[in-house]
């Protein structure tokens, strides 16, 4: 039962955070993608970088079980699917997680996005057998792959000479620095001039 309690606590914290960082607001998403207001981009990149530093530090110091990591397989469909997601993301200003959270904040267009999402997931579910025959699941870069080898994890890696934990911390710091260096909100008037 404790796993369900964790689901409630972490899930609620995630939903609360999504709303507080502005990710439930399609204006922020669309203006981020238009490169007009990188506030949300800075937030997300800082979040990924910090999480990476904490996670790989945690593994190094034995605070975090490597078995909790879950690296997804890399295949051709990841790129195609990502590109498809990007289309709807730009048009609507929602992605799967933020649409549910935005609908919860009272946004009605997000509710229609969620309904469409259920249809899209359903179409995928029904057409899966056929999709599997097209070759889009062909693995790239070794499938379940991380940048460096992580001790105790069963993933292949791109670089062999440096430990995956060190790379995770370094890449995390790089992302934090990128988040700091990215410009904040650009002035529309200055842009037009």
């Amino acid at each position: 039962m404790s796993i369900i309690v964790l689901a409630i606590v972490v899930g609620a914290a995630f939903g609360f955070t999504l709303d507080r960082v502005g990710a439930t607001n399609p204006n922020y998403i669309i203006n981020m993608l238009r490169l007009k207001d990188l506030h949300l981009m800075k937030t997300i990149i800082l979040g990924i970088g910090l999480a990476s530093v904490l996670t790989f530090s945690g593994i190094t110091f034995g605070l975090l079980d490597v078995g909790n990591l879950s690296v997804k397989t890399a295949y051709i469909g990841v790129l195609i699917g990502g590109a498809m997601l990007g289309i709807g993301f730009a048009v609507a200003g929602y992605c799967p997680g933020t649409s549910l959270a935005a609908a919860a904040t009272g946004r009605k267009d997000a509710l229609f996005f969620v309904l469409g999402g259920l249809v899209g997931a359903g179409i995928y579910m029904i057409s899966y057998s056929w999709i599997a025959t097209t070759g889009v699941f062909g693995k790239v870069l070794g499938g379940k792959t991380t940048v460096g080898p992580i001790t105790g994890a069963d993933y292949s890696s791109i670089i062999q000479s440096i430990s995956g934990e060190t790379i995770g911390i370094v890449l995390g710091i790089v992302l934090v620095v990128i988040a700091i260096l990215l410009p904040g909100k650009k002035n529309e008037a200055v842009q037009a001039a």
Binding site: K72, G81, V91, G120, Y124
Partner: peptide
């Protein structure tokens, strides 16, 4: 937004995540 949802979730499932 409904149609965007269709494309986004189909894409997310094809990619295996969002």
């Amino acid at each position: 937004t409904f149609l965007s949802g269709v494309v986004v979730l189909f894409g997310a499932r094809l990619a295996g995540g969002c």
